[in-house]
């Protein structure tokens, strides 16, 4: 995934063809992350456009250490956080750690085993529920989840983009995943029968 030195040089030299190639290559992923991070479509488009503009303006500063896409994702994440703050969104800070804690006994065995969300999720029947559970996630958890799970970036790359340690990223992902699972389960979606397991 490393950039070739020729490409790094072309980007740094602000070669129009190289910059245009980067913009074309990165735009779909940036838009996906902006949407999956909870921005409405028009705000997501603005954030992507602004991020790419910053990239082009600062192309000469690109050092080639990270993939160029990573660098732009980092710019986008800062824009998303600004946007979400500007919109004064109130995110419910659910204490998912305590929720998870209550599911196990002292020996760490399941006291309340997981049930859902199950097959309905796979069949795409619970789009609205899924969206509302995503909305309920605190923004950093949601962004971490978007970069890792939706975009499929490596954990190392996501750590660099979010400027967090591997442990911190683990905590963000743990909370996001369990927050979503608990939320969907609470909405009454049962898993498939045990016979299938």
């Amino acid at each position: 995934m490393d950039e070739t030195s020729d490409r790094v040089a072309a980007i740094r030299a602000r070669d129009p063809a190289a910059l245009e190639a980067v913009v074309r290559e990165c735009m779909p992923g940036l838009l996906r992350v902006a949407l999956a991070s909870g921005l409405p479509r028009d705000r997501a488009e603005d954030a992507v456009q602004a991020s790419l503009l910053v990239f082009v303006q600062r192309a000469q500063d690109y050092d080639g250490r990270a993939r160029v896409g990573s660098w732009i994702y980092g710019i986008l994440v800062r824009k998303i956080l600004e946007e979400r703050r500007a919109a004064q969104r109130i995110t419910r800070e659910e204490d998912i750690d305590a929720v998870m804690e209550s599911r196990f006994d002292e020996g760490g065995s399941w006291m309340r085993p997981p049930r859902g969300p199950g097959d309905a999720l796979v069949r795409g029947e619970m789009r609205r529920e899924l969206e509302s559970c995503l909305e309920a996630l605190p923004e950093r958890q949601r962004i971490a989840f978007a970069l890792r799970e939706v975009e499929g970036l490596t954990t190392g790359e996501v750590c660099k983009i979010l400027e967090v340690s591997a442990n911190n990223l683990g905590v963000l992902l743990f909370r996001a995943r369990n927050g979503l699972r608990e939320c969907l389960e609470a909405k009454g979606f049962e898993g498939s029968s045990d016979a299938e397991l």
């Binding site: 969300p117 199950g118 999720l121 989840f145 978007a146 799970e149 898993g191």
Partner: peptide
């Protein structure tokens, strides 16, 4: 573990 994988897949499909 399977439910986590399903949730990941469902969110990916959503976007």
């Amino acid at each position: 573990v399977r439910e986590l994988a399903r949730i990941g897949a469902a969110v990916r499909a959503l976007y």
